[in-house]
């Protein structure tokens, strides 16, 4: 019994790390632009599908998993540079543009990759680590590691790196930042690209563990957003923990309700946070930045 419980906790933490990574993308974009990227879930699926196609073309797994997010990020940078920068100042229109983007991406995913769910076959398939009787897949370990690396990187980025400080400055007081010679659109673009990079990376990490279909993005996005808002949208790095908490709750709930209702749990958490404490539970009481 205890072992099942621990196994459940672990698988919850693994899934939760994915939600967390996607959630970080939401927070970073929200921090810089005040908007929510509704296409974030689609970016995750697109990242995974690109990687699947790359490995299908006989490229090595690791290469595919790294190249796919980068390609996608470059695409987003172009998109931002050409179109989104025009509405970067107006959160509402930026949100509508990302809603539109999610519709288009979903159609493209369906057109190019079909209706059936697909997975990424990784070289670690079936390889597990046995720690005191607990089974932990290498692919699962990679997911957790990915989330932790993202956490540490972000912590460093926002507190130490000049660009991170500048991004924070733009969010806090846009006009003073402009008067200090910072171009807000640049940082908004960087945030957008970075958010999609994390989303695509999360997609690549989850694809070996669970199959994705063209419309998986909606639910993945919602859960990512739930993680982000649970942690507080103003603290991007903490979304990782928000996600892990959410994943664990989700997998424990299966003990009490039929597994089909599992997805409802994250959504209910989302609604509770939105209505009770939209500034998040892990944000330490600080007023939101944007």
């Amino acid at each position: 019994m205890i072992e099942t419980l621990i196994q459940l906790l672990i698988s919850g933490a693994v899934l939760g790390s994915i939600y967390g990574l996607i959630g970080v993308g939401f927070s970073v974009v929200h921090t810089a632009t005040g908007a929510i990227n509704f296409a974030q879930g689609e970016f995750a699926v697109l990242g995974a599908f690109l990687a699947i196609s790359l490995t299908g073309a006989d490229l090595p797994h690791f290469f595919a998993v790294i190249i796919s997010p980068i390609v996608l990020t470059l695409f987003v940078v172009l998109l931002f540079r050409i179109f989104l920068t025009r509405v970067a100042d107006d959160a509402l229109y930026l949100v509508v543009a990302t809603i539109a983007l999610s519709l288009m991406l979903k159609t493209l995913l369906l057109y190019f990759w079909g209706r059936e769910p697909i997975g990424l076959s990784s070289p670690f398939q079936g390889k597990t680590l046995n720690i005191a009787g607990l089974m932990l897949g290498y692919d699962q370990l990679l997911i957790i590691a990915g989330a932790l690396i993202a956490y540490i990187f972000l912590l460093f980025f926002f507190s130490k790196h000049p660009a991170g400080k500048a991004m924070k400055a733009v969010v806090e007081e846009k006009e003073i930042a402009m008067a200090s010679g910072l171009n807000p659109a640049l940082y908004q673009g960087v945030a957008f690209a970075f958010g999609s990079l994390l989303g695509a990376f999360a997609g690549c990490l989850v694809a070996p563990v669970s199959m994705l279909s063209y419309n998986s993005g909606g639910l993945l996005g919602l859960k990512g957003f739930a993680s982000a808002i649970f942690a507080g949208l103003d603290r991007p790095e903490r979304a990782v923990f928000g996600g892990i908490i959410l994943g664990v709750i989700e997998s424990l709930v299966v003990l009490f309700v039929p597994s089909g209702f599992k997805d409802v749990v994250a959504l209910i958490v989302l609604l509770i946070v939105l209505t009770l404490k939209p500034e998040g539970f892990l944000s330490g009481g600080r007023k939101r930045l944007a």
Binding site: A35, I36, A91, L92, G260, D263, V264, L270, L274, T275
Partner: peptide
């Protein structure tokens, strides 16, 4: 109901969540 408290994209997300829950109920 959330529209009384939430604005813009927060409301959009909340309604998206409710919509998704309802569809899951149709399935389950």
């Amino acid at each position: 109901a959330p529209s009384l408290k939430l604005r813009g994209h927060y409301l959009a997300m909340a309604t998206l969540g409710v919509g998704e829950i309802i569809v899951i109920l149709f399935q389950e």
